[in-house]
Amino acid sequence: MSAATDHGAGHGSGPSTTAGTPVLSLRGVSHSFGAVRALVDVDLDVHPREVVAVVGDNGAGKSTLVGIMAGTIVPDAGELVVDGQELGLTSPGLARQLGIATVFQDLALCDDLDVVENLYLGQELRRGGVLDEVAMEREAWRVLSRLGARVDSVRAPVATLSGGQRQTVAIARALLGDPRVLVLDEPTAALGVTQTAEVLTTIERVRDSGHGVVLVSHNMADVQAVADRVVVLRRGRLNGDFDAEQASYEDIIAAITGVSAPRRRRTAGEDA
């Protein structure tokens, strides 16, 4: 693992398809849960108009990375750089304020609350001190239709929605404050074929409107469909940073599993 990050991780100097300043950078981020080192010295850059896929096996540190970007986990070491400013992300609310919106794997919806209430949870619109239900409901319809969502009523508790609808509500909520970076944790894991296709289209739409997207997944088909860049985590360390168009499936799998790939071993950054 000593040369794990020798290949273009960070600073946009690698095989990135995008250039310019990143909207979000992680610098030397490490985090441990007790004796378990979940992340070790991880660097990550996210540029505007870019989908960065973070892949890795179970236990590679993907969820920890998501938690750190979402503000739910404060890393032991390292910092986040947003727009050139170094910050400590100490709360989910702060992450949102800085324009980092996260769609969690479990969606983080409140089942007893309706669609509008979930969309605006923690960021309600107010009018003279009280909630402005009319404005929130109007915006809810707008953002949902922009995502091409099919929801009968925005006043139904989300417990009554289907899995795909819930996913759309969670993505719509993340997009509400026009974030700079959208982080999605396994967004298609619970979805069927059609719904997966819809979510992937949504991701492309979000990218094309200028956002940076971090897609955490272990579904390689999804990754190859939408990612511009693929970052591999293995046992908490970066183990490769690939240009999605050039890297082969085998390269990425090899970096994930740590098994030496039969070819292009060096460019995959694998240390046999």
Partner: peptide, 9 residues
């Protein structure tokens, strides 16, 4: 859902 509420800020 207290976890969801916390993550909603």
């Amino acid at each position: 859902n207290v976890d969801s509420a916390r993550r909603a800020g």
